[in-house]
Simulated assay, not measured.
Amino acid sequence: MKSIAVFCGSSSGNDPYIVKESYELGLTMAKKNITLVYGAAKIGIMGRVAEAVLENNGKAIGVIPKFLQTKEIVHDGLTDLIVTENMHDRKVIMYEKSDGFIIIPGGFGTMDEFFEITTWGQLGLHTKPIGILNINGYYDALISQCKTMVERGFLKQENFDAVVMDDTIEGILEKMNNYVPLPAPKWLNKEGL
Rank of each mutant, 00 (worst) to 15 (best):
D161Y: 00
L36W: 03
I64H: 04
T79K: 10
R48T: 15
I64N: 02
P185F: 13
V53S: 05
V49A: 08
I73C: 01
P183W: 11
I64R: 00
M1S: 06
V19L: 11
L25D: 02
M176Q: 08
A41I: 07
G77W: 05
C146V: 13
Y23V: 14
P185W: 12
T84E: 01
K31N: 07
A5S: 15
F108L: 13
T168H: 07
M176T: 12
I117S: 08
I93Y: 13
N33S: 14
L155E: 01
I18E: 02
K128F: 13
P16M: 09
G44R: 02
T110H: 08
Q145D: 09
Y138A: 12
K71L: 15
I4A: 10
I130A: 01
I130Q: 00
I130D: 00
M149W: 08
H126Q: 13
I117G: 02
I64M: 06
D89Q: 15
G77H: 12
K128E: 07
M46E: 01
G107W: 05
I45L: 03
G109L: 07
D99P: 00
D167R: 10
F67D: 14
G9K: 08
I135K: 07
Q145V: 15
G153A: 09
I172S: 04
I4H: 05
L27V: 03
S144C: 13
V92N: 00
I61D: 02
F67I: 15
M111R: 00
E24K: 15
K91Y: 04
